[in-house]
Design a protein around this nucleic acid. Sequence first.
DNA 1: CACTAAAGCGGAGGCGCCTCCGTTTATTAC
DNA 2: GTAATAAACGGAGGCGCCTCCGCTTTAGTG
Lengths: 210, 210
Amino acid sequence: MAVEPSVIAETKNAVETKRLRADAQRNRDRLVEVAAAVFAERGIDASLEEIARRAGVGIGTLYRHFPTREHLVEVVYRREAEGLCAAAGELAEKHPSDVALEQWMQRFVDYIATKRGLATSLRILLTTNSTLFSDTSGRVSQALRQLVEAAVADGTIRGDVDASDVLHALSGIYSAPDTPEWRDRSRRLVKLLMDGLRFGAGKGAKKAGE
Amino acid sequence: MAVEPSVIAETKNAVETKRLRADAQRNRDRLVEVAAAVFAERGIDASLEEIARRAGVGIGTLYRHFPTREHLVEVVYRREAEGLCAAAGELAEKHPSDVALEQWMQRFVDYIATKRGLATSLRILLTTNSTLFSDTSGRVSQALRQLVEAAVADGTIRGDVDASDVLHALSGIYSAPDTPEWRDRSRRLVKLLMDGLRFGAGKGAKKAGE
DNA sequence: CACTAAAGCGGAGGCGCCTCCGTTTATTAC
DNA sequence: GTAATAAACGGAGGCGCCTCCGCTTTAGTG
């Protein structure tokens, strides 16, 4: 019933938390990685014992690192968000900017899929600590902005839209009901949006290529 | 994850649900009664096995009657609300109308105490089926109205207030934080309110006693 | 009353949660 | 290198959840 405030502290200090012993750090990383996979595969209610087992550690180790399920879920979610943001840069290097945008948005669909699941389980935490989602969503939309601006700048998508338009267009992904077809429907939405963005590419940019 | 719509149906038809076998009905009643006591004593997370044990039935029987914890909690809550409403009539018969009102409000504090606990556990259900609270709160405020009007009518409390004023004044009980002192604080609030209501009793009633 | 079908019972068993503490391992100091 | 110590490990064990199904009881019928 009582929600521990320590969660907040823990996450804020994450970067400068006291150095873990090498083995501890290894186990912790492993756990987060495995947890991400297991949550994706089995859903958010997956057994923590399975996670420990697959990570090759005892259940006690899992609990030492993540005193509650929510702690683990939160860390997984943050990692997911970071991965998504990092992908923006990587995709931008490897692909034409419109393709980069498209692929990133497809990945965004997956991200939202997890986010939905996690939200259910984090609900209790969130009522107390609501920096989590605002934190990450800021950085995610920053990543999107970067991609959209690049694509507009080199004329691979139309110039009369900006990142917030795109985000708005994507909002259907958030709000669509949690049906089995959700993911496919969302993928189609991204394609549709992309076609719309490509249509008339090169025209109407506020700044014509310099 | 999926929330069963059957809960709604089950409750609506509660009155005319197919007759249970005598032993089944006995067990069911017993379970609800015991559950109310155990929830009050141990909190909403009390062990269902303890409830079954104390009710003298097997855990299987509990689960047959109440397939999820939430089902049980809901029934307990409805029973609580009914008891509160019924108390209005009983208190009105046994006591002067201002005393009846005061005692009822004290009981109301207990009711809210459970309601808070239950709300936590029912949250998931409530997002789907929100008739529960509106249902009961209508009847509860009806009970309050009856008491307030009687007390105004016979001049034991002041006449320039009505039931909704009193309910409004009680809202502090709802919204106060869930601290250990909550109950005492709420009891004092009721006393305070009662003093206010008695002050100037007999004056200013819209209708002087007929 | 006896008989039968249907309804209901109950607890064993499998699984997951979480804690506790004896054992192991990394790190630090020498 | 070794020793000392703090940090971390891991899994046994206790408890609760929930399902499943062989056994018991009730309600109906003649």
